[in-house]
Nucleic acid binder design. Sequence first.
RNA 1: GCGGUGGUAACUCAGUUGGUAGAGUGUCAGCCUUCCAAGCUGAAUGUCGCGAGUUCGAAUCUCGUCCGCCGCUCCA
Length: 516
Amino acid sequence: MQEDLFKRLVSHCKEYGFIYPSSEVYDGLNGVYDYGPMGVELKNNIKEYWWRSMVQMHENITGIDSAIFMHPLIWKASGHVDAFNDPLVDNKDSKKRYRADVLVEGEIDKMIAKADKEVDKAAKRFGETFDEKLYRETNPRVLEYTQKAEATEKRLANALKNNDMADLKALIEELEIADPDTGSRNWTEVRQFNLMFSTQMSNIGGDDGKLYLRPETAQGIFVNFSNVQKTTRQKIPFGIAQIGKAFRNEIVARQFIFRMREFEQMEMQFFVRPGTEMEWYNTWKARRMAWHRAVTPAEKLRFKDHDNLAHYANAAVDVQFEFPFGFKELEGIHSRTDFDLGSHSQLSGKKMQYFDPELNEHYTPYVVETSVGCDRMVLSVLSNALVEETVPDAQGEDSSRTVLRVHPALAPVKCAVLPLLKNKDELVEKAREVYDKLKFHFICQYDEKDAVGRRYRRQDAIGTPYCVTIDFETLENNTVTIRERDSMEQVRVPITEVAKIVGDKTDMRKLLEMLA
RNA sequence: GCGGUGGUAACUCAGUUGGUAGAGUGUCAGCCUUCCAAGCUGAAUGUCGCGAGUUCGAAUCUCGUCCGCCGCUCCA
């Protein structure tokens, strides 16, 4: 059922020009998609909704557009060079894949557990006279375990530091580590998976010329913190917003545009006084949920706290949407502490602090981040909107229609202009006139092909909220009918009012006002 | 990467024991039509994923290869 909906959605997206598989004529490129004529409009509207809700609606939030190429040290400071490199190993028998370092760490834990067990046993034996410290330092068996654990830890750290995959493999073999599930010791070579794409800036020679395509837009904001603060004279708390492409070499890209290798983020980093970050974290949680609820039913949205916090965060929550394949992350809200600014400050040697006149002191601001996946937002809007319903046809019989119930402010085309009949020149001519007026206000489509009912259905399929029909009465008194997508109801209005009526209903302002 | 599964028109799919491709929808042109898809007439569109083999003959059989989907590993 749900899977059917998802398949229908994917083909609908292609059929009506929303989303095409990338490089299709060359058999496609896994995990990459192109936006078509309807898709780009929808996506731009989503971006505009976000941008205006951040930058236009908050005097203390400004936007930037930083470059995708950044100095390679940025990714060192951010922790991505380390955190994005996972050494993976496959078990040939069980076909399971593990992180090699996690396997070794598990083995180290076992060694420590063994030592602890020896200590426990001795403690029971000696009773109250037991000196744990002395025992740990002198008992040969405990010593053997702890020393082995320490040595292994050291070797693991070295191997990771030097990217020595061969030694990692050797370590797994020497420790006789078995697959936790099956007990098999039949391992493949350990391979490094780099989740960042790299490229070459050719006029810098050798390895130093290696650059990464940014895996998140946030760092472009952090490294511009001082520039923005000084040039805009913002006082803390204030935020910097950015929309842009990011790139991650996912091991598997799946679920249509949900997880792509090239994707777009809408991120806002909010800089606050240390100690106030949880307050702001909760404020932004609420604001962001309100933003989502303005376009998505509340029951399809929920918060999901992170079980494991990232290296930079002291609190993290996801906004999840119920996709056809289950509740999945749409947006992340993180309290990033002063990790990023502190780290860049340390590595670059440049101060990234703020002088707080109220406190009369310098500090490194804390950061609360909101980060939405733009493409995921497109997917959520589409999967929430696509409906197949039964409506009466001209004879009052049941007929089905496919309709995209997207919010009018997000709809790719706002208005279709239709002459009732195309073989009547007066109607066609008048319709052209109306179209030529409306096109200055919003995106319109003119269509005269086929019966008008069929044209309505065509517009329904791409989510056009309003259809204006020019009929014989129009020729008499300059009025037209406006047909609304969801209710299919029509009202007759003077031509001179169409731009205002449709404009009001499709204006982004409607959405923004819901956030107040 | 492994396992499962699939690749035929823009979309959804059919194609029987091997005889060089069809349907519905959609698209285009024309007719009809005074407001909600499926009225009439006509038309265009396929290297049947790609390559090799078997065969007189391959969408169909064999092998290889590429790509997609689902699951596992990963997801800061």
